[in-house]
């Protein structure tokens, strides 16, 4: 329990510093903050005044940061510099697509990555070679390239799946997001499959597995209880980093498939230099990234008693 609190505290500290970096980043830009925020657009004096007010440009720097942080903590992410829309509302309307896409891809990575890795390790021969080859090449496939190829083959040519838009309702959304999720998951599947295969192979040669075989424990028990179960320990970490990375790489896929998630919103905002929106999304991504990593670490402590105990009571 203290471990959990400690980790939460560390996450909070990191988030505060990160928010400072995200906030102060724009002051690194050449020119005055005003110029940076307006970016040469012609704006009316009222809008300029509201920008000055939103960023508190008349206050000292730290006060500005403090006020901004307090607003953020209350869910007020400011207004878009272009459309004057409320950023929180904008992000909230875009978030479901991104979460759906990331969750879909996470499931694909877990099921296909771990599944292929285990199958490869337990069925030697051609299949294993194929998985090894595929994973060596697969991690090298950029998500956006996979996206284009999938769109070309299954979208334009075969017409099985739509190539843009994110759909309404669960089933339609699933259908719309299938190709994007596969493209997004592709490198992750390759990496996880490779790690899983190596982990299972290593576990197959471990002393306790050989001991279990020597004791006449039936094959299936040896396989599931000892080999696969234990090989999942290193896999969890890799799986976690890959899933945490999904949110950040999702924006390339959202852009390629013109989905209305926060990723494409981020890219568009960067292209249109709408820094208020960029800041907000960056913060959300850092938060999500940190949370997922934390969850993975805690999960690890749950499944491996050695971690659990060494972090808790100092038994030996």
């Amino acid at each position: 329990m203290t471990y959990v609190l400690k980790r939460l505290g560390a996450l909070a500290a990191v988030l505060v510093v990160s928010s400072f970096i995200v906030f102060s980043g724009m002051y690194l830009a050449p020119g005055s903050p005003e110029q940076f925020l307006v970016q040469g657009r012609t704006v009316s004096p009222e809008v300029l005044a509201s920008i000055r007010a939103q960023y508190g440009l008349d206050d000292p720097f730290l006060i500005r940061y403090w006020n901004w942080l307090m607003d953020v903590l209350q869910g007020d992410l400011g207004r878009s510099l272009l459309t004057q829309q409320d950023v929180s509302a904008l992000v909230a309307s875009r978030l479901p697509t991104t979460l759906f896409l990331a969750a879909f891809a996470a499931i694909l990575i877990t099921v296909l990555g771990v599944g292929l890795g285990v199958l490869a390790a337990t069925r030697s021969g051609a299949f294993e070679k194929l998985v090894v080859f595929g994973s060596n090449l697969g991690f090298a496939v950029p998500t956006f390239f996979a996206a284009l190829v999938l769109m070309f083959v299954f979208g334009s040519n075969l017409g099985w799946f739509p190539v843009s838009g994110s759909g309404e309702g669960f089933a339609d959304r699933l259908w719309h997001l299938t190709l994007p999720a596969i493209a997004l998951a592709f490198p992750g599947i390759a990496v996880v499959a490779r790690i899983t295969r190596t982990a299972v192979r290593e576990e197959q040669g471990s002393e306790h597995v050989i001991m279990a075989i020597a004791r006449g424990v039936p094959k299936q028990f040896v396989l599931w209880r000892h080999t696969i179960r234990n090989s999942m320990l290193p896999v969890t970490t890799v799986l976690g980093t890959n899933i945490a990375g999904l949110l950040a790489s999702a924006f390339v896929i959202e852009y390629a498939f013109t989905l209305d998630g926060i990723g494409s919103l981020l890219v568009n905002s960067v292209q249109k230099k709408d820094f208020a929106v960029v800041q907000a999304i960056a913060l959300i991504m850092v938060l999500a990234f940190g949370l997922i990593n934390l969850i993975v670490d805690l999960l690890y402590a749950v499944i491996d008693p050695r971690v659990r105990l060494s972090k808790g009571a100092a038994a030996r």
Partner: peptide, 21 residues
């Protein structure tokens, strides 16, 4: 079955012989 019923191994390293988790 022979392994289970007729033979029994006592390995060199007891820490390795048992599943750590």
């Amino acid at each position: 079955r022979i392994r289970a019923e007729d033979l029994a191994l006592i390995a060199q390293n007891p820490h390795g012989a048992l599943n750590p988790v």
